[in-house]
C-alpha cells in the first residue's frame, strides 16, 4: 500500500465526518479513529499489494457498534505526560479486554498503583484467553487501547509510571 494512497483514504474519511472506520481487504486492514492516536495500517498477506479501492460506503455498521463502547471508555482516558513511563505491550495478536467479562470491573484504571505481576488485561485470540501481567510496578497513567479492539504483537497497551 502506497503512502499517498493511504493519505487519500484518510482525507476521504476526514471529509466524511465519520468518527471511526474499519476497512478490510485481502491485502490490508485499516482502522482509523478520529481524535485518537490509534491509526494503524496492517498488511495482512505478504504478497504484492493490489490496487486498493475505497468502498463507496465505508463500513458504517462497524462504526455504530464501536461508537457506543467508545463513549464509556472516553471517561477513563486521561491525558498524561509521557515522561518516565514504561509501556505494557501486547505479547500477541488478539482482542484486548479490560475486564474478565462484560459485567466485571476493569482490571486497572488510570491512576491505579499496580505491582509487578498484576493482571492488567486479557488478550483473546482464537477462543484462547490470555491474562497479561504487568512487568513493572507503578502508576497507570494511560490506557492506550479501547476495550474489545484488536491489538498487534508488541503494540503498547498501557503506560505505567514506575514508582
Amino acid at each position: 500500500m502506497k503512502t499517498d494512497k493511504i493519505k487519500e483514504i484518510l482525507q476521504a474519511i476526514a471529509a466524511s465526518g465519520l468518527d471511526e472506520v474499519n476497512i478490510e481487504t485481502e491485502s490490508l486492514k485499516l482502522h482509523v479513529k478520529r481524535n485518537s492516536s490509534t491509526t494503524y495500517v496492517e498488511s495482512v498477506v505478504s504478497k504484492p499489494v493490489e490496487v486498493f479501492s475505497l468502498p463507496t460506503a465505508p463500513a458504517s455498521p462497524v462504526v455504530s457498534e464501536i461508537a457506543e463502547s467508545k463513549k464509556t471508555e472516553k471517561a477513563t482516558l486521561v491525558e498524561a505526560p509521557a515522561k518516565n513511563t514504561v509501556a505494557v505491550k501486547s505479547p500477541m495478536i488478539g482482542t484486548f479486554y479490560r475486564s474478565s467479562s462484560p459485567d466485571s470491573p476493569v482490571f486497572v484504571n488510570v491512576g491505579d498503583v499496580i505491582q509487578k505481576g498484576k493482571v492488567v488485561c486479557i488478550i483473546e485470540a482464537m477462543k484462547l484467553f490470555n491474562e497479561i501481567e504487568s512487568e513493572v510496578s507503578g502508576r497507570v497513567v494511560k490506557v492506550l487501547v479501547e476495550n474489545a479492539s484488536p491489538v498487534e504483537y508488541d503494540q503498547e497497551l498501557f503506560l505505567v509510571e514506575p514508582i
Binding site: 505481576g117 488478550i123 484467553f129 490470555n130 491474562e131
Partner: peptide, 10 residues
C-alpha cells in the same frame, strides 16, 4: 477445549 493462560514477560 477452553484454555486460559497467564502471561508474564512474554
Amino acid at each position: 477445549v477452553l484454555i486460559e493462560n497467564t502471561i508474564s514477560e512474554q
